[in-house]
Nucleic acid binder design. Structure first.
Lengths: 238, 238
DNA sequence: CGAGCACGCTTGGAGCCCCAACTTTGCGAC
DNA sequence: GTCGCAAAGTTGGGGCTCCAAGCGTGCTCG
């Protein structure tokens, strides 16, 4: 609005507007750097920066050698950046540094997968491996229960357990390009009530997370968090 | 790890590691652009880009004329980037474009604020204005109930209702620098059950959002979403 | 001794350039 | 008509520079 604010913002706001009002539908190409410099009469740095900002917001995606395109999937920040509040202390450290005990439970058995899971992980049922792990709070109460499914060939036993999925995939030459998460609250299943020591009437937050390598799902997990034991907090600089 | 990947990543990863393991505690200064170029033997562009990436992640904050510092508050992505799935259609548009009906309900009455709200909004109770608005789904069911509190002087009536908080604040010369949100699930209160037409046993997602202008809270709101009617989905490009 | 000013440093915006890797397109040969 | 290759265009990494605005320190002057 003000003519004084950065020129790259003019470009960002104009393109963002076009995406929001449908002028640029999902998949539509964004003008290239060279075209933007001519169209908006700005330098290459400004055009480039505008594209980077929009890509950072997840509105567009850049493909080398091809161009920038409006993203089809809405992009938002994933749960793995959430931090858990280990009350009473506010702003307890995140899962990385938090004094957590992780229990790994390896078993490769047929997953009672609904159609939803099948869509998320299009991998042969026999080659699927199920792994369950828990995260405990300081006072011993379980804070999170996660079940992950991944193809057998990637799954390794023994000491490798603790290596992160990204690291293990990297060894196979597979680069994870995207993490998609779906979140909702629901009533806990009997097994979950047991595992998480839930009191009657407590609901859970259910996160379905899928790691993608290109258009191929490489790992998917169900994360269940007790509704009375979690509280996430996050802030955003503007 | 690989020597082939971008040099700016070397800088990013090294600083990120130092922040995570506590070598650089909150508030600690990050080396300046000039210092980084010398320390890591990289160009200014790489140093600058590394700082931008870290700032984008919310790990550090740049202060013009002073330097970059490790952020004290953990920064994560706010709910306002979430998109609601208006089922049955998957990936329905977000709140901006979604066919929503917003009902505004202005009333300036003393808020039955607990100590939590008081901390969030350190403003005189008499000069506080309460505004409630609903967002409805296509089928008429309420999807969200939000109650916001802001100082009287900023609140205006009439047509201004629909102008966003950021726009209104802008007119007062106040720039919102940060949005902090706290999320958890809980049992709905009687009034909420009524307003949201909740069935028995349904829990709600409760978001406490506060807008900050520097270290001054300028607006705070309670957003309540029925647990059976929402499902957020988001993805993150890596 | 204290107030104020000037200088040096830092960020963030902006411009221009070079290059590697990759995609797309179009042309020419078979 | 189809295959293959070359040229043109595009992204993303990286480099260099200039400048305005803002912060801090220290020195000078009253």
């Amino acid at each position: 609005m003000a003519t004084s604010d950065p020129v790259y913002l003019r470009v960002v706001e104009d393109i963002r507007r076009q995406i929001n009002d449908g002028t640029l539908p999902p998949g539509a190409p964004i003008p290239s750097r060279a075209q933007l410099t001519r169209k908006y009469q700005v330098g290459e740095t400004a055009a480039r920066h505008a594209l980077r900002v929009l890509a950072g917001e997840g509105l567009i995606i850049g493909r080398v050698g091809s161009g920038h395109y409006v993203r089809d999937r809405p992009v938002l920040a994933p749960l793995h950046r959430w931090r858990f509040l280990d009350h009473p202390a506010p702003f307890a450290a995140d899962l990385q540094s938090q004094g957590r005990r992780v229990t790994w439970d390896w078993h490769s058995e047929p997953v009672e997968a609904g159609p939803e899971l099948g869509r998320r992980l299009r991998i042969d049922a026999s080659t699927r491996l199920t792994r369950t792990h828990y995260i405990f709070r300081g006072d011993g109460k379980p804070l999170q229960l996660a079940t992950s499914y991944e193809p057998m060939d990637f799954a390794t036993h023994g000491d490798e357990e603790r290596r992160s999925l990204i690291t293990r995939m990297y060894a196979f030459g597979i680069k994870i390009t995207e993490i998609v998460e779906s979140v909702h609250t629901r009533v806990p299943r009997p097994a979950e009530m047991d595992a998480l020591q839930l009191a009657a009437g407590v609901h859970v937050l259910h996160v379905e997370r899928t790691h993608w390598a290109g258009d191929r799902p490489v790992e998917t997990s169900d994360i269940v968090i007790p509704g009375d034991r979690f509280r996430v907090m996050y802030s955003m600089p503007l």
